[in-house]
Design a protein around this nucleic acid. Structure first.
Lengths: 121, 121
DNA sequence: GCTTGACTTCGAGTGTACTCGAGCTTCTAC
DNA sequence: GTAGAAGCTCGAGTACACTCGAAGTCAAGC
């Protein structure tokens, strides 16, 4: 099978069918090829992009920045450096976010221990 | 000075004045004591709680779970264990989230290197 | 030929967490 | 005594990212 239905794509990506259509509607992904009946056919390349977009989304990138990224990608190889820069910026933000989470996790830990000790006393 | 104005509190906590009033309005924090003129006075204890709530918020806890937590806290020492459990649950989620972020960061890194190599070629 | 189920479009609705603005009071300084 | 700054309440508005539902098409199986 060289392509997948929207249902199969949604299952594979852990996105809802609604979300897949939504991403296409807002122009985040390019229009997916259709069968004779008008149904969407998701190619491996489509799934690849969507999988990476899901990764960006899960790391906190906004839809509008993802759109900027995809617009660059659609413009071809001339934007490779720009794309690398956009992702590097994002990378920095994710790193900072992880560091912040780790610091705040310690605060939570402290509080947990505090409560456990008080409860035991 | 034993208490702070809403402006000072907002600055110290990096929250907006609107947000501080909002948290009180929805019952996340208990009503803050007021001066004769009706203005809020934030005590160190108020700031302490708000600071911890901000920490929970930044680690992704929803307002409604924070509210559950604060409701427990207001019930006194009988809920110490329950509070420790609630925070432990949250801790697990934060740990999982950090792990997920780190895994996805690698995907982003891979893509960046990919682009950099292609751009150099 | 009719039901069933998967798909389609389109516009509208939802949940979360703020965020804002109008209209009012109240204190301080001139 | 008046201007200006800071606070107050209350209801409404906003941004984001979906999420849903109505109404329709189309192909397969009975």
């Amino acid at each position: 099978m060289t392509h997948k239905s929207i249902r199969q794509a949604a299952e594979e990506l852990n996105l809802s069918i609604h979300t897949l259509r939504y991403y296409e509607r807002i122009g985040l992904i390019s229009p997916v090829t259709r069968g004779d009946n008008g149904h969407r056919h998701y190619s491996n390349e489509d799934l690849c992009w969507l999988s990476f977009l899901t990764c960006l989304r899960n790391t906190g990138m906004s839809i509008s920045i993802m759109k900027t990224f995809m617009d660059l990608a659609r413009q071809g190889d001339g934007t490779l450096t720009a794309r690398a820069e956009l992702l590097s910026d994002h990378r920095e933000q994710v790193c900072a976010h992880i560091a912040q989470l780790q610091a705040q996790l310690e605060q939570v830990d402290t509080k947990i221990h505090c409560y456990q000790q008080q409860a035991a006393a």
